[in-house]
């Protein structure tokens, strides 16, 4: 009678230790993965002289001087990045919501082809067309213009956004849409009054992913802008001087450039997971 009762104690202990063991492994992995980001932030608070030492310094008097320097030159870049990111994300949503509706709720005849056409444009390497793109922009007087970036970032994010929003729309129970039809709601009303309120968490994750990709984009900005539309990644590159000590300055600039997206991403983690799994596959 007492044997099982006696055995229960050690077993629970073993289960607990296994659990703690996995926890420790997870923490080690997590910290190791985070280390480069942590090191970036630490270096950003160093004075330039303490940044390039051997062995690396872990204890030093933190200073904000590099941040001051970064902030002083960042203004226009930040503005361009915000305008390009916000502008393209809004445009993406405006275009993607009706398109996703047409591909899901009352689908057009060849909705599969439509869907695959959109995603296939993502597979065409934009780099292949960079020369002609430059020439086209030149002729349209759009070179070094924030409008050009908005237009291109919208095209860059539109396919993924359509796929994501479509998958969220498919989750709206069809009964609900039928009820709306019986109640006399037209198409606009159906989208605005019934569908959008339900999929708004999905829209947030879609917007978030568009923001991440637009904010971080370098290739197009580097090739097609100089000063009037140069974005934060360009600012980052410009913070690497040809000579002299620059590691602390670079780290401060990298921290400042990355922090907005990191913070937003941290806050909206769950939303990010939803968006990335495209809500659909079951």
């Amino acid at each position: 009678m007492s044997a099982p009762a006696l055995r229960r104690g050690p077993r629970r202990l073993r289960e607990l230790s296994v659990r703690v063991g996995w926890g420790v492994i997870a923490w080690v992995v997590g910290i190791a993965f985070f280390l480069p980001v942590l090191w970036m932030v630490i270096t950003a608070f160093k004075p330039e002289s303490a940044a390039e030492t051997w062995p690396p310094k872990f204890i030093f008097t933190p200073t904000l001087s590099e941040f001051h320097l970064v902030f002083s030159g960042m203004g226009p870049f930040l503005t361009h990045s915000v305008v390009a990111t916000v502008g393209s994300t809004i445009l993406v949503l405006l275009l993607a919501i009706p398109a996703a509706y047409a591909l899901s709720v009352y689908p057009v005849k060849h909705w599969r082809d439509g869907l695959f056409f959109f995603i296939s444009t993502k597979m065409l390497p934009i780099v292949a067309a960079i020369g002609p793109l430059y020439v086209i922009a030149l002729h349209l007087h759009l070179l070094d213009s924030i409008w050009l970036l908005i237009v291109l970032y919208t095209a860059m994010n539109l396919p993924l956004a359509i796929w994501m929003i479509r998958s969220f729309m498919l989750e709206v129970p069809s009964e609900l849409l039928e009820a709306a039809r019986l109640d006399g709601a037209g198409r606009i009303r159906e989208i605005g009054g019934v569908i959008l309120p339900i999929i708004s968490p999905g829209l947030v994750s879609t917007a978030l992913i568009c923001v991440i990709f637009a904010w971080n984009e370098l290739f197009l900005a580097l090739n097609l802008t100089v000063t009037n539309a140069a974005t934060m990644p360009m600012f980052l590159i410009s913070s690497v001087p040809q000579e002299g000590l620059y590691i602390a300055h670079l780290s401060a600039a990298a921290t400042v450039a990355s922090v907005p997206v990191i913070i937003v991403g941290w806050i909206a983690q769950r939303s990010l997971v939803r968006g990335l799994s495209m809500g659909a596959i079951k």
Partner: peptide, 16 residues
């Protein structure tokens, strides 16, 4: 901690 590298600007990651 683990998702953070995805959020870091690729240009920043490369330079750091």
């Amino acid at each position: 901690l683990i998702i953070t590298p995805f959020l870091v600007m690729p240009a920043a990651a490369a330079l750091v």
